[in-house]
């Protein structure tokens, strides 16, 4: 199963890398989202896969499952998911704003901090 997961992670990363290398702003945002997914899954795979091993403690105070999943990566991923959402939301609004100001979604045109000359 780990091999399959590792390949999936690799594909997600490759897709994310490819998308953030695009010139179109919108594609870069999609790439960001893909990278965020890739990282979460990567952490999850590396943290160790266990079936049904929910890290819960029963009423009696002992672990419910015989083999339980490592809770630490899970806590990390949970944080990562939420932060990833924040980043994506901010990036999305920022890009929208950039587009409205510069009137271009081509990253190659966003290479200067000076205001472009308006030719009418």
């Amino acid at each position: 199963m780990e091999v399959v997961m590792a390949i999936t992670v690799g594909v997600l990363y490759a897709a994310g890398f490819y998308m953030i290398l695009r010139r179109s702003l919108v594609k870069v945002i999609i790439g960001l989202a893909l990278l965020s997914h890739a990282s979460n899954l990567f952490l999850f795979t590396v943290g160790g896969l266990t079936r049904n091993g929910t890290p819960l403690i029963s009423e009696s105070g002992v672990m419910e499952a015989e083999v339980y999943a490592d809770p630490l990566p899970q806590a990390l991923i949970l944080t990562a998911i939420v932060i990833g959402f924040g980043v994506q939301a901010f990036a999305l609004v920022l890009f929208k704003r950039v587009f409205q100001t510069v009137k271009s979604d081509d990253l190659d045109e966003l290479t200067t901090t000076e205001q472009a000359e308006v030719t009418s």
Partner: peptide
């Protein structure tokens, strides 16, 4: 991208 992704697979 494919090379970098493949690398991430191997690392995972």
């Amino acid at each position: 991208a494919i090379i970098a992704g493949g690398l991430m697979s191997v690392i995972a």
